[in-house]
Simulated scan of single mutants.
Amino acid sequence: MPANPDAIVSLDWVRAHLDDPNVVFLHAGGDRAEYEAGHLPGARWVHGYDDLTVTRDGIRALVPLQHEMEATLGRLGVEATKTVVFVASGKSMWPHRGFWVLRFYRFPNVHIADRSVAAMAREGVALTSDEPAVAPATCALSEGDESVLSTWEEVLLTSQGAGKAVILDCRTDGEYRGEPGAHAAPRLGRVPGATHLNWELLVDDDGRFLPPERLRSLYAAAGIDGTRPVFPYCGGGIRSAASWFAMHEVLGWDEARNYDGSWAEWAARTDLPIATGE
């Protein structure tokens, strides 16, 4: 699959569409204070964990069910005919998570901005602290697209040596070795056989992806070249959504499939193996 040049919109595109009634900017993050400190005019606040994940069967940070996501988008005034652009205050995985969730539900027109809101402000884009009035809408989504999702069963088979897929741990070096991360987990470690590439290395401090040739080099060092399926995971399918975006949308590797359950699910299942250390 060729790379998707429309997945990321430029600063010039953002400037040209700030007043476009058919474009909805969704400012995603983990702390509303980021949004209140300054956002694009008309942008609507999306809380990453509250709006783009749910806890289900005791597992945190799973993709919302279809009706749950439809309700969230409706509350945000998003109809399926709109163009959605995810942005964030600074370097963040939340726009990529938002993109992946909407892509999973086959939302027709979803994008991310090519840089953070802070970077836009340095380029002269005026920010506001005013929150727009939003009229509720009806948003009908399609059934989830399993081609962008991987499951613990598939990851386990790969870990056991079946098939040709690659398991990619997108967390920090410490989490990969088995050290505690930002979120408590019943067990520490990694999926046996997983290679490692911290998602933070894929983007610069302004949230811009590195050039494709640099991304390919980083993935190649982790044993990934786009010729095999890749199952990226992290603590809860959020950071791994950024790596999925880099592979699937920037590099055009259509066999990248985000493991949404990620370590939250894997660690909770005591029947699944773990590895620790280097």
Rank of each mutant, 00 (worst) to 15 (best):
Q66K: 15
A221K: 11
N198A: 15
E200N: 09
A242W: 08
V23F: 00
S89Q: 14
A113L: 12
G235C: 08
S243D: 14
A80F: 02
E265S: 08
G252K: 07
R15N: 00
P212I: 00
S89D: 12
F25S: 04
P180K: 02
I167V: 14
P5W: 01
Y259K: 07
Q160D: 06
R44E: 02
Y259C: 09
T128V: 12
F25A: 03
D31G: 04
W45R: 02
R75Q: 10
G178E: 10
L157H: 11
Y219P: 06
G235E: 07
E36H: 04
R269T: 08
S217H: 13
A121R: 11
W253D: 04
K82E: 01
E200V: 10
A43Y: 00
V230L: 08
S240V: 12
D204E: 03
S116Q: 05
G144Q: 05
A113Q: 03
S142D: 15
V250E: 12
L11I: 06
A121N: 12
G189A: 15
T83C: 08
T276S: 09
G144A: 13
A37I: 00
V63T: 12
R187S: 11
V85H: 06
V125N: 02
A184D: 10
A126V: 10
T55H: 00
L40S: 11
E153A: 15
D130Y: 01
H39Y: 11
P232K: 15
A113R: 02
W266T: 06
E249L: 01
E249R: 07
A220M: 08
D20C: 13
G252P: 04
R257N: 00
P212R: 01
A242K: 10
R44C: 02
L65D: 05
I8P: 05
Q66E: 14
D225E: 11
C139M: 13
F231V: 01
T72R: 15
M93C: 03
T172N: 03
E70L: 02
R269P: 01
I224P: 11
V203C: 07
D225T: 09
A246H: 11
D206C: 04
A264H: 10
W263S: 10
F231I: 03
A165T: 05
G42R: 06
E131Y: 00
R115L: 09
A3R: 12
A133C: 02
W244F: 06
K164F: 01
P192N: 09
G277V: 01
A126K: 10
V9W: 01
V46L: 09
V46F: 06
W100C: 03
R228H: 13
F25Y: 14
S217C: 08
A222S: 13
N4D: 15
E131S: 04
E36V: 04
P64D: 07
E146F: 11
P41A: 12
A185H: 12
